[in-house]
Nucleic acid binder design. Structure first.
Lengths: 327, 327
DNA sequence: CTGAAAGCGCTTACAG
DNA sequence: CTGAAAGCGCTTACAG
């Protein structure tokens, strides 16, 4: 162009591919700088069949939990020079499918966390040639590898710990209906109580928001007999519950023990610091992106394996362990 | 294709443009469904010159502050059917420029928050034809509209409030060097102290992380004479400071008052709840995306105006207002 | 080493 | 109403 060379040479210089003579190289570089030329990525990826971009489909993008998850994804992506096209808040399968279609031709693969989607609708929504990795997805959803948190094991361990501390009436604030993680955490709760106890177990409805935890807390404060321990299906609900209990004059952990799930950063700052189950959220994001990157580089290598990330009990003050021990 | 029609007709049906006869429409729709056909977006945007995507360039993507900001951006984008291509963690101007180039041809406009970039480097990095909106940027950086938080006013009001409560020795934990918001908040701090007092003012270095606040807190606990109030340049540093003070046995607010800036969600959950300056972070994201959307739709309409979002004092317990009043 | 040409998958005047 | 053709801005064999 202005450097009196063909577009082919420009391409070769800018991409460092093909052989170019030094003077030509210089002319091109100089002209590119002068014209502030930047290649048009859409055109480029149309021919290279590569976008160096990952589509990320999440139910939400907000709050500490997703912030941690995205951090893991973002870090791993940056290390590999990949960009992120994010799409959030897909209430139902239809919206998710739409979002996925909109990504066709703009991404090399997708990371999908869609707790309400089952295997069928996911398979229907995913272009069959698009590499994908699933996050916290029910069962073996289709052909893609999946990474899941050990929700069942973590919840079970938490409730067993409460029982070991001597609590008798343990309530659960559940996550939203139809959500895979909610269901697994509830299942862990019930498993820990065993057949005899679970009949008496109080399960309150919630939806993972602080507000729903607050409402559950009000119910708990008024309940008779009042449970002596609560296991909330996530930390945000535990925090909402704590607020409601405090307002009602019910002390934590003296009057009632309180625990959560996730170990979001805020959990250790509240008073009392929250006993919870640590989920490796950042790691979940990182590993799933790595797996996806592999699947993109070598499509044959992708196995629809299911990887489960372990959880860990984090004992702080809200479960009253210190008091119990002292007795 | 399989529907025995031309690609032109397919395009017309799928985009609802041009006139098509009903039987043709049906044939195309059926075939598209059968083949699970989805248009290739890169090819499409190459010819339409539209991507329906916004590039978002942030210094970081993690933590409550950015979570709030992104929420505002994301919501507004979704309402308008726009996708988000995010790029984070650009330490210097060079990296930011690279990220911006990589967005060429993939976005219709960019939202840039780059607290270390000045007008020149930003102008150099921004393709001159790309609509852009700047966030919390120093001065009038170039040709693009900008949205900023009133960091100066908020900081000044906070420190004036501390003075009104009778505090005599007020320290400041500053944000990172060279950061526009840090500088403005420091300037507000100094303005509130006035000429006489600012000579005695203690300013500790920080970088907006909890860790740096923690270190500052250790210094404060050991200082002699110890300040009777601290204004941290953001909430995360205030929280780190609080932990250090607590460990050192210094009580907040009895022994020392503590305040922050941003009003991130966690601020009201800590003990004591944090007095802070509320920045309209979500609103900042929302408004800047709206402005950008307008600039994209009507390039002539874009004025390089600077919009300042007001702040608001949020009085909680960490500033010891209750105690002071009682005296 | 370099350029002319084909082609990536679309959309849109332009004919018919 | 419908199709053939051109063209969006690139990259990459293919000649020379």
């Amino acid at each position: 162009m202005r450097a009196r060379v063909s577009t082919a040479s420009v391409s070769r210089v800018l991409n460092g591919s093909g052989a170019v003579t030094e003077p030509t190289r210089q002319r091109v570089l100089r002209a590119a700088q002068y014209l502030r030329y930047t290649p048009h990525e859409a055109a480029r990826s149309l021919i290279t069949r590569r976008t160096r971009t990952i589509g990320v489909l999440l139910p939400d993008i907000h709050g500490e939990y997703f912030s941690e998850l995205i951090r893991g994804i973002d870090r791993a992506a940056r290390l590999r020079g990949l960009h992120l096209l994010v799409s959030s808040s897909h209430g139902d399968a239809g919206e998710a499918a739409l979002a996925l279609r909109a990504m066709n031709g703009r991404v090399d693969g997708v990371l999908v966390m869609s707790p309400y989607l089952n295997a069928k609708s996911l398979d229907a929504a995913l272009p069959s040639t698009l590499p994908a990795v699933l996050l916290n997805t029910p069962e073996q959803a289709g052909r893609a590898p999946a990474f899941v948190i050990d929700d069942f094991g973590g919840a079970k361990a938490m409730v067993e710990h409460l029982r070991a501390l001597g609590y008798q009436r343990i309530a659960h604030i559940a996550g939203p209906e139809g959500n895979y993680e909610s269901a697994e955490r509830l299942r862990g709760f019930q498993a820990a109580l065993g057949r005899t106890l679970s009949g008496r177990a109080l399960v309150l409805a919630g939806n993972f928001t602080e507000e729903s935890g607050y409402q559950a807390g009000q119910q708990l404060a008024a309940a008779a007999p009042r449970p002596d321990a609560v296991f909330a299906a996530n930390d945000m609900m535990a925090i909402g519950c704590l607020l409601a209990l405090r307002e009602a004059g019910v002390r934590v952990p003296e009057d009632i023990a309180l625990t959560g799930f996730d170990d979001i950063p805020i959990a250790r700052y509240i008073t009392p610091p929250l006993t919870t189950v640590r989920a490796q959220t950042t790691e979940l994001g990182r590993q799933s992106l790595e797996e996806l990157a592999h699947a993109i580089e070598d499509r044959e290598s992708a196995r629809p394996d299911r990887h489960t990330l372990s959880t860990q009990l984090v004992i702080r003050e809200s479960c009253g362990q210190a008091q119990r021990r002292a007795r």
